[in-house]
Computed example of a mutant assay.
Amino acid sequence: MAETNSRKISPLVKTGLELGPVVLFFIAYVLVKNRTFDIGGRSYEGFILVTAGFVPLVLLSTALLWKLTGKLSKMQLVTAVLITVFGGLSVWLNDDRFFKMKPTLIYLLFGGALGIGLLRGESWLQSVMEGAMAMKHEGWMILTRRLCVFFLALAALNEIIWRTQSTDTWVYFKTFGLTIAVFLFFMTQGKVLQTYALEEEDKTPDEAG
């Protein structure tokens, strides 16, 4: 997983492996959401059955990303572990609440980690994404503060949605709402990226290529 062993792959392949399991989860849920299944003497709702299929699918896509790129980010690893743990608990205990609270914990962990770095005067986001974007330290700190607040807000929002709304509403929120929210967040950070972008003469030899 070291950076020296990393390999580039097609952006379409990378996006497909990252978002494919979520799309398949949604399609499968729509197809079986009103059905129940008797397995081993127990009755399972469609949501639980789809969750049981989603966990190995995420693990497979994560393994393929590792094989193709030679690395995995800490965020990808944490996400895969939490999906496995909380998805597994939902299936084992036949209780959808564990899987629904999983995004809350993911965003709390990410937001909390960024917050700890900020308290130390550091941008842990910079250490993760510096290879993808060349930006001054001040810019990284601004972006990190905003992303920290954004992640904590998503955690709170997920709690509100799954505790007060139907499973249908939560699935739509998880599939589309969270994905669109993350996309819009980064789309609205263009001014920060532009204002604090490093000029060619400011880049290190590695950043300049």
Rank of each mutant, 00 (worst) to 15 (best):
S43N: 14
G139A: 04
W66V: 01
R35H: 13
Q76D: 13
Y107M: 11
L152S: 08
V81H: 01
L105R: 07
K33P: 01
A113N: 11
I142W: 00
G88F: 09
W124M: 12
F176C: 06
L60N: 06
L118P: 03
R163M: 15
R120A: 13
D168Y: 10
K102D: 00
K67C: 00
W124V: 12
L89Q: 09
L125T: 09
E159C: 12
Y107E: 01
T84M: 12
G88H: 13
T51Q: 13
T169K: 08
A52W: 03
G41D: 04
L154I: 14
L114Q: 05
T79G: 12
E138C: 05
M141D: 04
M75D: 12
F99H: 08
K71R: 15
T164Q: 15
S90V: 07
T104H: 06
P56F: 07
V128H: 07
A80P: 10
L152K: 03
I39K: 04
V91H: 04
T62C: 10
D38F: 12
G131S: 11
I161S: 10
A156S: 13
W170Q: 12
I48Q: 03
K174N: 13
G115R: 07
C148F: 06
N94W: 03
A156F: 15
F151M: 14
A63V: 12
K100H: 14
S123H: 09
E130F: 03
L157R: 07
G70C: 05
L125K: 03
G46H: 08
F47N: 01
K100S: 10
T169G: 02
E130R: 15
L72F: 01
F151I: 00
L154H: 02
W92G: 00
G87I: 06
E159V: 14
A155W: 03
L152Y: 02
R120E: 09
N94I: 05
W170H: 15
G115P: 00
F176T: 08
